[in-house]
Amino acid sequence: MRALLVVNPAATTTSARTRDVLIHALASDLKLEVATTEYRGHARDLARRAAESGAYELVVALGGDGTVNEVVNGLLHNGPAPDELPRLAVVPGGSTNVFARALGLPNHVVEATGALLDALREGSERTVGLGVAGGTPGTEDEAVPARWFTFCAGFGLDAGVVGRVEQQRERGRKSTHALYLRQAVRQFVNEPNRRHGTISLVRPGQDPVEDLVLSIVCNTSPWTYLGNRPVYASPRASFDTALDLLGFTKLSTAAMARYGTQLLTSTPERGPRGKHVVSEHDLTEFTLQSQAPLPFQMDGDHLGLRTSVTFTGVRRALRVIV
């Protein structure tokens, strides 16, 4: 099997020596070509060329969720075609690795490589659904290009946290769960609309849900991890369905403490609940709109401010080795 390994050399949890060991292990079973990313978006470009060339049966992403997202967007540049596109494999090398862990892969790089080789030998794979989001026609954001995401997107407060973390990383801070928690507290304290939100959920043929302070779109469950603790914002979200949404219509200090505790103690059977909670399951198409520009993120990548984003859940978008 001919494969392209896309390596992010800045991946948080891998060293040059570890990468060399992994490359040697994969090359023993695959006709392997290795490409190292050199700039933001390079993984997307490499995966796109691999898909369009027709020369590869497999593209392996070695890196964190950002690298995986770029590879997925490259593979799906011309749209989903699971039977024609190369299959995707992931070797987690980031700080959180939500997509890989949601697939059931080990979070340790070497163990994940062993699991990948076993899956290839056994022919074990699955087809996963993904989300795609872009600007809304008829709005000032309509020119925003569509982009795929693998596990989550956020519009509002949680995207603001991602933006704060990226600013800290640009200043040399290491990406840790403690850093995320500190920035979450700061974002909450400085959030001007936490008592009366500006976000509306608009779905075809239904009345809008208004005044959301925060909106989290999930393509799978868990939503994220704090260390080894999974956090379930939308427990019913799945790679086999469309998209789920969790929103809050009020986030006072007391409400934030209550819902924050519920998130930290969430389980695959039970997520946040209460009179200020909006929970929707298996949405194929919807739009989030805001009266004022708000932060927007996909798969942990801050994408700037938006006033409107349209989401589509696409079932059976891509084949993945598991």
Rank of each mutant, 00 (worst) to 15 (best):
D207Y: 02
M298P: 01
A35P: 00
K31F: 06
H302K: 05
M298G: 00
G104Q: 02
E269Q: 15
R315N: 07
N78D: 15
S28N: 13
T198F: 03
G197H: 03
V98T: 14
V314K: 10
A35M: 11
A51L: 11
T127V: 15
R306F: 10
R173Y: 10
L26K: 01
R270M: 13
E285G: 01
Q262D: 07
R194C: 07
G94Y: 10
R19Y: 00
T113Q: 05
D45T: 13
D158P: 02
V109L: 12
R194S: 08
Q187G: 05
V314W: 01
R258Q: 13
P295I: 07
A47G: 06
G93L: 08
T261M: 13
V90T: 06
A119E: 01
Y56K: 12
A27H: 11
T36E: 15
L4D: 06
Y259F: 09
H196M: 12
G304T: 12
Y225N: 04
Q167P: 04
T312E: 13
P192V: 04
N8T: 09
A35C: 10
T312D: 05
L245F: 02
G134W: 04
L214N: 11
V309M: 12
P192D: 01
R270E: 15
A242F: 12
G154I: 00
A115W: 09
T284C: 05
Q291I: 00
G154L: 02
L26P: 04
E142W: 10
L46M: 10
H77N: 05
P106F: 08
A102C: 15
P82M: 07
A11L: 03
D207L: 14
T136S: 12
G154C: 07
P208N: 07
G131E: 01
Q289W: 03
Y225F: 15
G247H: 07
S28W: 09
P82I: 08
S221T: 13
L251V: 06
A27W: 00
L130S: 10
L318N: 06
F99I: 04
A292Y: 12
R182D: 13
P208H: 09
A153M: 06
R194F: 02
H77G: 02
L214M: 14
D240A: 15
R49G: 07
G123L: 11
V128S: 03
H281G: 00
L120N: 04
P208F: 11
L243D: 06
P145F: 02
V202P: 00
A254I: 09
D65I: 11
I199G: 01
G114S: 10
L318V: 07
T96E: 00
H281C: 11
P137G: 09
T96I: 14
K275H: 12
A55W: 02
A43L: 03
L283R: 10
L264H: 12
W223E: 02
L58I: 09
R319S: 14
S308A: 15
L75M: 11
P230E: 05
N190W: 05
R87T: 06
V209Y: 01
R229K: 14
P106Y: 09
